[in-house]
Amino acid sequence: MSHYTPRNFTLPADYCFRGDPRDPAESAADPYIFSREAVIAVDVALATGRPLLVAGPPGCGKSRLAETMAAVLRWNFVYQTITSRTRLEQLTVEVDHLRRLNDAHLAARSTSPHALADRDEEYYHPGIFWWAFDAHSARRRGLPESVARPRSEPRFPGVERKPPDEAREGTVLLLDEIDKAEPDLPNDLLEPLDRGSFGLPDGRTLRAQDGAQRLTVITTNRERELPPAFVRRCVTLLLAEPAREALVAIAAVRAPQAEKTLVEKVADRIEALRQELDESGRRPPGTSEFLDAVNTCQQLRIAVDSPDWEETWQQIELVTLRKPMVTEDERSRPA
């Protein structure tokens, strides 16, 4: 298969992002090896301005792809993990009724005459779509420029990066695990994803800033089916579990201190386990669990040529890769 060179971002020829020294340690993205499919999918999503829907088994690097792209592009990174309780308002804008009620009570008691804010916007809480569409407006809670700053400034929900010289500001927006949402949420997202806008509680419409760049990444473990209308609006990428050689390459950048023989031995076990667990209908271990196993052996200084390797490895395999939810006793006990 031919080598693909992305047009909208820059990557080394081996598709390996090795980190960016300009990022402070607490917000630096880990090294990441892109697959050819991932490079093409991200490039297409950037070219078409469509959201990128990434599917794949847990631990295969879906969320990290978004975080890494933010670092590669030197864009802001905002994210929200979706749960069954996530609503559209949480992702766009919410009104803090409780704070308002509290302020009203305080003002009525005259203990603090300025407790209640003059403007409704003071009680707006911007969600990640607002931050991605217009971070300046979100920071001001939607207050017009003629008004002074809000009494309390909301916190940026992610990593902020200063764009390189003369570059426009951009944002990578990650909606993680969309399949955990109630079935209506993906349909609710069509409006902000499709039109780049959403309604504010006062009836105004907040639109994405002209010229602002954005890459929306949505991940799914495919636990639930997504509405076809939603899927058909996205660029799609199916990330598979890396094969043995790819696992060894990932370990070389993510756990560079680990011995090659150890890494290869663990990768061999992962391959064997994948086949065994897949046949019995259990979930096979992912890339993150592979790295856990390698790091565990590394931290505990367990060498593959040590006499008790087999015995120790059985325990490590049990807790990092197999993760059984029942004991052998329970399994053999009659129903």
């Binding site: 999918a41 829907l53 799914t220 495919r222 997504l226 899927v231 660029v235 799609t236 199916l238």
Partner: peptide, 15 residues
């Protein structure tokens, strides 16, 4: 990746 052709993945198919 745009959903056209034989390489289009069916994300809604059960894994």
């Amino acid at each position: 990746v745009l959903g056209f052709g034989l390489r289009a993945a069916d994300l809604n198919a059960q894994p």
